[in-house]
Design a protein around this nucleic acid. Structure first.
Length: 576
DNA sequence: GCCGTTTTCGGCCCGACTGTTTTCAGTCG
């Protein structure tokens, strides 16, 4: 379960969607959307706030505050329940399909009686879509493609929601007196970009109190199964959680086993067999006499196989065992190695927090440098102007001494146009300390065009970092079609870093692409792309991608000391 | 529904793209 702020954000967003679907006032719907974002990005936990306190959140007025308060005290919002009764949940769910908005969702429901994504796919295949005015064959194809996209990531949970839930469960189980150890394992521990379910491992003499604690959690909606060693539940958010309890002396072997990956485990077991041993979740045994050799810690298990401990993000059988045998495991970059954030927004464009709030929160993270990179004018809806940007720079310079240990950088997130050019002329660009350049339009351009535009952006002497390169949004929008190797080669040649965007909705680039880019000699920037102060914590997810891609501090420009980063950012000077 | 160094009423992020129109509606960022 995520923060209460996130729960309320989801409810307000649902209310806004339902207002849109039922043809309510568009501005009213947008007011709730804005309030939803504001609550989600609010740094203070709303639990315990009263109506007055809630109204202090920008974008939350009396009406919204009362609805939130109603939820906080009674667990439901009457107005939301009323409108929910009108529109089946599946109709709203159709809005998550690219190409389907509130108007089409309603038309599909009213005209064809379609009330779920599955029924929608069925109707398109049965060629019934053209019965709805304004929808034809092409629309059907696009929508069907969108449905495919959702299904590909279907049922998987984003890393932030999974991490928040796992942290809470581990905390709850650790508090049980009988519990001696508890941690999460599985793909979450390996920091995969999404997780299918959450695996929790615990040790106790008597497992019953732990099983009981899990099934009694307030957000446990359904107990799928429960026994002495394993209990599975589903949360109110539909996430499956498996808890396994083992004796304390088997902790290490069980943790290896339940962390995976399957391919990594198979390789370990094969090594064990060759050495006359047998590895299972219960320990490492002598194959002959069945005597247990070790299983108390992961270190011991790996050591008994002649290996150093291998960090979970590497356990994918991508050569980590061979590297470990050669003593060539990388010293992975860690969250604590990050010395700054080079891609963040403020309320000057679409961020929620002020410049001061963002800077103060960044300083609290102990950064040595911090860049503010608000959107550039070609993203028209942000209404950026030269004057606004220069005024922000002025304001930033005035705040220079606010945190003595943290250097402030003035930057921007440029838009890479269809031809690869960016918003401002060279003269204006040279006034920025750092420029991120990203694709925000023309996602459908063909492979050659996408490749050309990105290479041209790399060749721009003022562009230091390519932001969220593939522009994918997990489960919502696929990556653009681009020759990644050609772009990586251009980035390496021109000294342009490629971003690992840490937003859990993006995580762009993906780990396997980062691996490929690294082979080209590309450097990376692990950034939050924060639009609110809590988002500044996102690099914990981007670090997962970086670790899965074997990156060290050498590969990551914002893990470098300022003087070294400064030289990297003098790309334009070095090239002239 | 929210908000006010333009405002307590009257605005509210604006334009491109797409497919379906034959002048525009819906969706998206």
């Amino acid at each position: 379960m995520a923060r209460l702020n996130d729960k309320v954000r989801e409810l307000l967003q649902e209310y806004a969607d339902l207002i849109s679907i039922t043809g309510g006032d568009a501005f009213r719907a947008r007011a709730y959307e804005k309030a939803a974002r504001a609550v989600g990005g609010h740094p203070v936990d709303i639990d315990g706030l009263d109506v007055k306190g809630l109204q202090q959140i920008p974008g939350v007025g009396r009406s919204t505050a009362e609805k939130i308060a109603e939820y906080l005290t009674g667990g439901r919002i009457e107005a939301l329940e009323t409108i929910r009764a009108e529109i089946p949940a599946g109709v709203r769910a159709m809005m998550s399909v690219p190409g389907v908005g509130p108007k089409r969702a309603l038309a599909l429901y009213r005209d064809l009686g379609i009330a779920s994504v599955d029924e929608l796919a069925e109707a398109i295949r049965a060629d019934r879509l053209s019965e709805v005015p304004g929808l034809g064959e092409r629309s059907g194809e696009k929508i069907l493609h969108g449905i495919e996209l959702i299904r590909q990531s279907g049922g998987r949970t984003l890393l932030d929601a999974a991490t928040a839930l796992a942290d809470r469960i581990v905390a709850a189980l650790t508090a049980v007196p009988e519990c001696t150890r508890c941690a999460y394992a599985g793909s979450l521990r390996r920091m995969r970009e999404t997780v299918g379910d959450i695996d929790i491992l615990a040790t106790a003499e008597d497992s019953a109190p732990l099983m009981a604690a899990l099934t009694a959690l307030p957000y446990t909606a359904e107990v799928i199964g429960t026994g002495p060693t394993k209990t599975s539940i589903r949360t109110t958010d539909g996430i499956q959680v498996d808890l396994r309890v083992v004796p304390e002396e088997d902790w290490g072997a069980a943790l290896v086993y339940f962390t995976g990956s399957k391919a990594h485990n198979i390789k370990l077991r094969t090594m064990a067999v060759r050495a006359g041993l047998k590895l299972s979740e219960y320990g490492l045994f002598d194959a002959e006499d069945g005597e247990k050799i070790v299983s108390a810690s992961e270190d011991e298990v790996y050591a008994a196989l002649g290996l150093p401990w291998i960090a979970p993000p590497l356990r994918e059988d991508r050569g980590e065992i061979e590297a470990a045998l050669r003593g060539e495991l990388p010293e992975l970059v860690a969250e604590a190695d990050l010395r700054g954030d080079l891609h963040t927004h403020t309320d000057l464009t679409d961020g929620l927090a002020t410049l001061e709030e963002m800077i103060d929160t960044a300083a609290a993270r102990g950064y040595a440098y911090y860049a503010v990179t608000d959107h550039a004018p070609d993203l028209v809806m942000q209404r950026m102007t030269d004057e606004k940007m220069l005024a922000q720079r002025e304001q930033l310079r005035e705040l220079a001494g606010r945190h003595r240990r943290m250097r402030l950088l003035h930057g921007t997130e440029l838009n890479i146009g269809p031809d690869g050019t960016v918003d401002w002329p060279a003269e204006f660009l040279s006034g920025f300390d750092v420029c991120v350049a990203s694709v925000h339009s023309h996602f459908g351009a063909d492979r050659d065009a996408q490749t050309r535009r990105l290479i041209r952006a790399c060749e721009n002497p003022h562009v230091h970092i390519i932001g969220h390169l593939t522009t994918r949004r997990i489960g919502r929008r696929g990556p653009i079609d681009v020759d990644l190797d050609a772009v990586f080669a251009a980035a390496a040649r021109t000294g342009t870093a490629i971003e690992i965007n840490s937003s859990p909705q993006r995580l762009d680039l993906r780990d396997e692409d980062v691996l490929r880019a690294k082979r080209h000699g590309v450097k990376f920037s692990i950034d939050s792309d924060a639009h609110a102060t809590p988002h500044l914590a996102y690099p914990r997810y981007g670090i997962g991608t970086a670790q899965r891609a074997w990156l060290t501090t050498e590969d990551v420009i914002n893990a470098w000391p300022w003087q070294r980063l400064k030289r990297f950012l003098r790309k334009d000077a070095l090239r002239t």
